[in-house]
């Protein structure tokens, strides 16, 4: 019930931002469609978790986001360096690596995979349970995994499990 109510409130906020109309007709339409969505797919947003758990995860995400943004800038600069280098084939050491992650929840694992994709020189290829396959562009990028990023995500998203 709580999950459905929270879904309804979030959907309504989203509706108001997207439509920008405040007359009775549009607001009624919004409330009706939000009720429908909340009734039929209320479990989707919280996937059976308690609302507080998901809220804390999202708050942890906010503390993690600035660092991620900085990493995105660094990774784009690195791609710039490789792409503009005249002998770029010498700079590259492409390789597939596999390792096991310590993160437990689905949300943290997905965040970890997305972060790997966005940070310098690596993209996630697949996650099977706790084994991740990563394609790395250079040796140093391959050596840096899992390392600091996993620690930061564990700190932001799963503080009770450390």
């Amino acid at each position: 019930m709580k999950a459905k109510l929270s879904t309804f409130v979030i959907m309504l906020c989203f509706w108001v931002i997207l439509s920008g109309m405040f007359d009775a007709f549009h607001l009624t339409l919004g409330v009706l469609s939000c009720l429908l969505v909340a009734h039929f797919s209320g479990k989707m947003l919280f996937e059976g978790l308690r609302v507080e758990v998901r809220a804390r995860q999202i708050f942890g995400m906010l503390t993690y986001a600035p660092w991620l943004l900085w990493e995105i800038v660094l990774s784009s600069l690195q791609v710039t360096y490789i792409v503009l280098h005249p002998q770029m084939l010498d700079k590259m050491e492409p390789q597939l690596i596999r390792f096991k992650t310590k993160l437990k929840s689905k949300f943290a694992r997905v965040t970890f995979a997305q972060s790997i994709t966005l940070t310098p020189g690596t993209i996630t290829v697949s996650i099977q349970d706790d084994e991740m396959t990563v394609y790395a562009l250079t040796n140093s990028a391959a050596d840096s995994l899992p390392g600091e990023m996993e620690r930061r995500i564990a700190l932001a998203l799963e503080p009770e499990r450390r």
């Binding site: 791609v79 792409v83 770029m88």
Partner: peptide, 21 residues
Amino acid sequence: IGTIGILRLPDFYSRLHAAGK
């Protein structure tokens, strides 16, 4: 940079680096 990367890089997976980031 992304466009040059997608044109210059040698294989499919490394092109994704340029495209994604």
